[in-house]
Amino acid sequence: MTHRKAFEALDTTHRDITGVEMPFGGKVMILGGDFRQVLPVVPHGSKAQMIDACIVKSLLWNVIKILPLKHNMRAQQDPKFADFLLRVRDGNEPFVQDDMIRIPDALVIPWVGDESLGQLIASIFPGLEDIAFDSSYMVDRAIITPRNEDVAWTS
């Protein structure tokens, strides 16, 4: 979800610091994720602006070596979700409006007010009160959102 200009700035910074005119100053950079699934956030940006912000539009893309994962752990445990992701990736999931796809009901918690947030947290972090300080429990779970204000916790 990082804007390509951030990678380009990091590249320039590494080149300046190291004095080495190689991508990222000759340092190995490891990037994770699937740029086809998560576009960079461009506030109030158009689809074209979001696509332009992707690292694939950077000159750095020519020197990036892609090492695909051999096993998708989620796909092994949830083949229906894996099939859905493949249909989205390949452009085979039907659109419901413009460029929008319908998220399967099994992946959605309908918004009906503040209790929906509690339901989301309970589904991602079941038994949180009893096990919140167990690092192995926390490391396997996440709620991802593109904006910090969406996850601001107030008590």
Rank of each mutant, 00 (worst) to 15 (best):
R141F: 10
A53S: 02
I131D: 04
L117S: 14
G33Y: 00
I64N: 02
R15N: 01
D83V: 02
R102W: 03
L31Q: 06
D52L: 07
S136K: 13
Q97V: 07
V42R: 05
D16G: 07
L69G: 08
W153C: 11
I121Q: 10
L69I: 09
G118N: 14
R89G: 14
V42I: 14
R147T: 09
D98H: 06
I144R: 06
W61Y: 04
V20I: 12
Q77G: 08
D134I: 15
V41T: 09
A106V: 10
T2Y: 02
R147K: 15
D105N: 14
I124F: 11
P79V: 01
F81M: 05
M1W: 09
C54H: 02
D134M: 13
R15C: 08
H3K: 04
F133D: 15
L59G: 12
F133V: 11
C54A: 06
I131C: 11
L10K: 02
Q97I: 08
T18G: 06
M29I: 15
G26L: 01
D130T: 15
I66V: 13
T18K: 10
R74P: 01
T145D: 10
I131M: 11
L60C: 01
V88A: 03
I124W: 10
D134N: 15
G19I: 01
M29R: 05
M138C: 13
N92V: 06
A9P: 02
Q37L: 12
I17V: 12
D98N: 11
S58P: 00
I144G: 02
S123P: 03
S135E: 14
S46L: 04
Q49T: 03
V139G: 12
R102V: 07
M138K: 07
V20S: 00
H14N: 12
I17P: 01
G113F: 07
K70I: 06
P40Y: 01
E129L: 12
N72D: 11
E21V: 12
A48F: 09
D130E: 15
G45H: 05
M50L: 12
D105A: 14
D150E: 11
D134R: 13
G26N: 07
E115V: 09
K47G: 07
G45E: 04
P79T: 02
I143P: 02
D114E: 14
P126I: 08
P23F: 03
F125A: 06
E149D: 14
D99L: 05
G33M: 03
V20E: 02
W111F: 15
I17N: 08
H14M: 15
F81T: 02
T2R: 03
N62I: 08
I121E: 09
I143S: 05
A132G: 03
G45M: 03
F84C: 00
I109E: 02
W111I: 13
M138T: 09
R74E: 01
M50F: 06
I124L: 09
L128W: 15
Q37R: 04
V108Q: 06
D134Y: 10
D11P: 00
I109C: 07
G113M: 10
I144V: 13
M73Q: 09
I64W: 00
E129K: 13
L120T: 10
D34V: 00
H71W: 03
M138S: 11
G113R: 09
D78I: 00
L60P: 01
M1I: 14
K5S: 12
L69S: 07
A82F: 03
R147A: 10
V88R: 04
D99P: 00
L85Q: 05
D99V: 04
F133P: 06
